Amino acid sequence: MKGKLNIFSLGYEQKLSKRTTIYAIASYGTGKLKFDNTENVKLKSTLVGVGLNHRF
C-alpha cells in the first residue's frame, strides 16, 4: 500500500472575559491511496468546530 495525504488546519481563539473563551477550528484533508493491483482511492475530509469554554 502506498499513499500521500495533505492536511491543512486553522484555529482561532478569542477571550470574551477573564474566564470565558470562544474558539473555532477548520481542517481540510485530501489524499490518495494505492493498494496492490488496484486503482487509486481518493480521500477527502472536512472538519469544522466551534466551542465556548467557561472556567468556574
Rank of each mutant, 00 (worst) to 15 (best):
M1E: 12
M1W: 08
K2Y: 06
G3C: 01
G3H: 01
G3M: 01
K4M: 03
K4E: 14
K4Y: 10
K4W: 05
L5H: 08
L5Y: 15
L5R: 10
L5N: 05
N6F: 10
N6S: 06
F8N: 13
F8Y: 12
S9P: 06
S9T: 02
G11P: 04
G11Y: 01
G11L: 07
Y12R: 05
E13F: 07
E13A: 15
Q14K: 15
K15S: 15
L16R: 03
S17E: 03
S17F: 02
S17W: 01
K18C: 06
R19D: 12
R19L: 13
R19H: 07
R19G: 07
T20G: 04
T20H: 01
T21F: 10
I22N: 02
I22R: 05
I22W: 12
Y23S: 10
Y23E: 05
Y23H: 11
A24K: 02
A24G: 13
I25G: 14
I25R: 14
I25E: 14
A26T: 04
A26Y: 02
A26S: 13
S27K: 09
S27Q: 10
S27T: 12
Y28S: 03
Y28M: 02
Y28H: 10
G29D: 00
G29E: 00
G29F: 00
G29K: 00
T30Q: 13
T30V: 08
T30G: 04
T30Y: 03
G31K: 03
G31W: 12
G31H: 04
G31A: 02
G31Y: 08
K32I: 00
K32Q: 14
K32C: 05
L33M: 12
L33Q: 14
K34I: 03
F35L: 15
F35N: 14
F35K: 14
T38A: 11
V41R: 07
V41G: 00
V41H: 06
V41L: 13
K42W: 05
K42P: 01
K44R: 08
K44P: 07
K44D: 09
K44E: 13
K44H: 11
S45A: 03
T46W: 06
T46L: 09
L47K: 05
L47M: 08
L47H: 09
L47F: 08
V48S: 08
V48Y: 02
V48G: 09
G49W: 00
V50P: 03
G51Q: 02
G51E: 04
L52T: 03
L52A: 06
L52P: 00
L52N: 04
N53C: 09
N53D: 11
H54Y: 04
R55W: 01
R55Q: 09
R55L: 13
F56G: 04
F56S: 00
F56M: 00
F56E: 01
F56N: 05
